[in-house]
C-alpha cells in the first residue's frame, strides 16, 4: 500500500493525516478528519454535494486525490461561517446560510453543503449575480427534492442586498 503523510489546512487549522495515494480528499475530510458536513453523494463527480473550496475555488472533493492538495487550504461547509466571520465579525453565519433558511431552500439537506459552497463562491466572484449566472454556477449540483427555485432565490436574495458586496 502506498501511503504518505498529508499536510493541509482545513477550515483554518493545519492538519496532518496518514493517507494512501488512492485516497480522495472527500475520504480524508469525512473518514479521516470527521468533517461529515461534506456529503458523499455519487462519489464520481456527478452530483456536486461534496463541493469544498480548495484555495478558495469551488471543487469536487470526491474526484480530487488527496495527494494533489498537499499544502493547500481547504474550506468545508463547517468552516464557511468562520470564514465569513473573520471578515464580518458582526455576523454569526454566512449570509447565504441565513438566506437558505429564510427562503426555505433546505428540504432533506443533502445537497445543501455543496449548494452553499458553490453559491458562496459565486457571490465572491460576482457579488450581484443574475439568475442565469446563478443557474450556471449551480449547474453541477443536484437537488433530488427538486427545490431548485428556492435555492436560486436564496443566492439571488444575498446578491440583491445591495448594501455591500458579499466578499
Amino acid at each position: 500500500m502506498a501511503g504518505t503523510l498529508l499536510q493541509l489546512t482545513v477550515n483554518g487549522h493545519p492538519q496532518t493525516v496518514w493517507i494512501q495515494d488512492k485516497t480522495t480528499l472527500l475520504e480524508v475530510l469525512r473518514d479521516g478528519l470527521g468533517f461529515t458536513g461534506t456529503k458523499n453523494g455519487c462519489a464520481v463527480g456527478q452530483c456536486g454535494t461534496c463541493t469544498v473550496w480548495i484555495d478558495g475555488v469551488s471543487r469536487l472533493s470526491c474526484i480530487t486525490l488527496a495527494r494533489t492538495v498537499e499544502g493547500r487550504t481547504v474550506t468545508t461547509v463547517e468552516g464557511l461561517a468562520d470564514w465569513w466571520r473573520e471578515r464580518h465579525p458582526e455576523d454569526v453565519y454566512h449570509p447565504l446560510q441565513s438566506a437558505f433558511v429564510a427562503e426555505g431552500a433546505v428540504q432533506c439537506g443533502f445537497c445543501t453543503p455543496g449548494m452553499t459552497m458553490a453559491g458562496a463562491a459565486l457571490l465572491q466572484e460576482i457579488p450581484h449575480p443574475d439568475r442565469e449566472e446563478i443557474r450556471e454556477a449551480l449547474g453541477g449540483h443536484l437537488c433530488r427534492c427538486t427545490g431548485y427555485e428556492q435555492i436560486i432565490r436564496a443566492v439571488a436574495a444575498v446578491g440583491d442586498r445591495g448594501k455591500e458586496d458579499v466578499r
Binding site: A43, V44, I63, T64
Partner: peptide
C-alpha cells in the same frame, strides 16, 4: 494524472487499474 476529473471516477468505479499515476 492531470485534472483527474475523468480518471478518478474511473478508478472509483474500477474502470481503470494503473499501478502508478
Amino acid at each position: 494524472l492531470a485534472g483527474g476529473t475523468d480518471l478518478v471516477p474511473n478508478l472509483t468505479w474500477e474502470l481503470a487499474s494503473p499501478t502508478m499515476l
